[in-house]
């Protein structure tokens, strides 16, 4: 039985916005890379690198303006109760193309998707992308496709699965080495291994020795979760709101020492 719950923490103070995570993600998951990034309908990316600034209203003076980059992928929501996960996208899928795994990863089977895009509407993070066109690979990109991931055809919704095929690969390697306990298998998603500054850290949220132990992250004043404003509420208010509504409860934590950035990410000011 799986006891691991994979999670991620992204240190935005370390992030330089180089975009290596985005490129490696697309290469790993067989997504075509376009040189024109502004062509939104053609663009299929699991990991969005967003540029934000504290001057979006204008009027800040020179020297006060700050910018930051936010890598945004699927947050692998678990709903209010992580033991019985109910992500918003899984509930609405009519064909069971998306499901929650034992390790808390929200899967998406592209070949099973009928393209109704309910999940895209239900996703609070816009982490899901719809393939409007057939993937067009430039040059000899097609020869280097990853055989572990199926190529998404036109008319399907795709999303990040924390590179769970790498977990399967590592599991096979562990079994070949004589290890049969799947809880001891560890892996690194493509974006994490590509990050040159070590801003993205990946691990087990349940394990106290892991760098992303959830209890430690929840008490960290730098940590914030995206558009999850109830984290800032007091304990009893949070419990009251969670009785009324199912909150996404994402597994990706953002760390930042800048208060304006934390406010933008959490959406606390506008809630």
């Amino acid at each position: 039985m799986m006891n691991v719950r994979w999670g991620m923490s992204i240190d935005l103070d370390k992030c330089t916005g180089c975009g290596a995570c985005q490129i490696s993600c697309m290469q790993e998951n067989n997504m075509p890379i376009f040189d024109e990034d502004s062509d939104i309908p053609k663009r299929v990316t699991f990991l969005d690198l967003m540029k934000v600034t504290n001057d979006f209203e204008g009027g800040k003076k020179y020297g006060e303006v700050q910018t930051a980059f936010i890598p945004k992928m699927c947050m692998q929501c678990s709903g209010n109760d992580p033991k019985n996960p109910h992500p918003p996208c899984v509930t609405v899928c009519p064909v069971v193309a998306t499901d929650v795994g034992d390790d808390g990863i929200v899967s998406q089977i592209w070949s099973r998707c009928i393209g109704c895009r309910y999940c895209q509407a239900a996703c609070p993070y816009e982490a899901r992308v719809f393939n409007w066109w057939k993937p067009r690979y430039e040059g000899d990109f097609k020869q280097g496709l990853n055989s572990d991931v199926s190529v998404a055809s036109r008319g399907t919704v795709v999303k990040c699965t924390f590179c769970s095929h790498i977990w399967k690969r590592e599991r096979d390697r562990a079994i070949a080495g004589g290890e049969t306990d799947i809880n001891k298998v560890t892996y690194t998603p493509a974006c994490v291994s590509a990050c040159p500054t070590g801003a993205i850290v990946f691990g087990d949220l349940n394990n106290p020795n892991s760098p992303v132990y959830e209890t430690r992250l929840k008490n960290d004043p730098r940590a914030v979760r995206m558009v999850h404003s109830i984290d800032q509420q007091p304990e009893n208010e949070r419990a009251r709101r969670m009785r009324i509504k199912d909150y996404p409860n994402p597994k990706v934590y953002y760390l930042s020492s800048q208060k304006w950035l934390r406010d933008i990410i959490s959406g606390f000011q506008n809630s």
Binding site: M1, T98, D99, G101, S107, I109, D148, T161, S164
Partner: peptide, 10 residues
Amino acid sequence: ISNKCLVCHD
């Protein structure tokens, strides 16, 4: 053994 989609599909 778990029958979740992610066990075999990718």
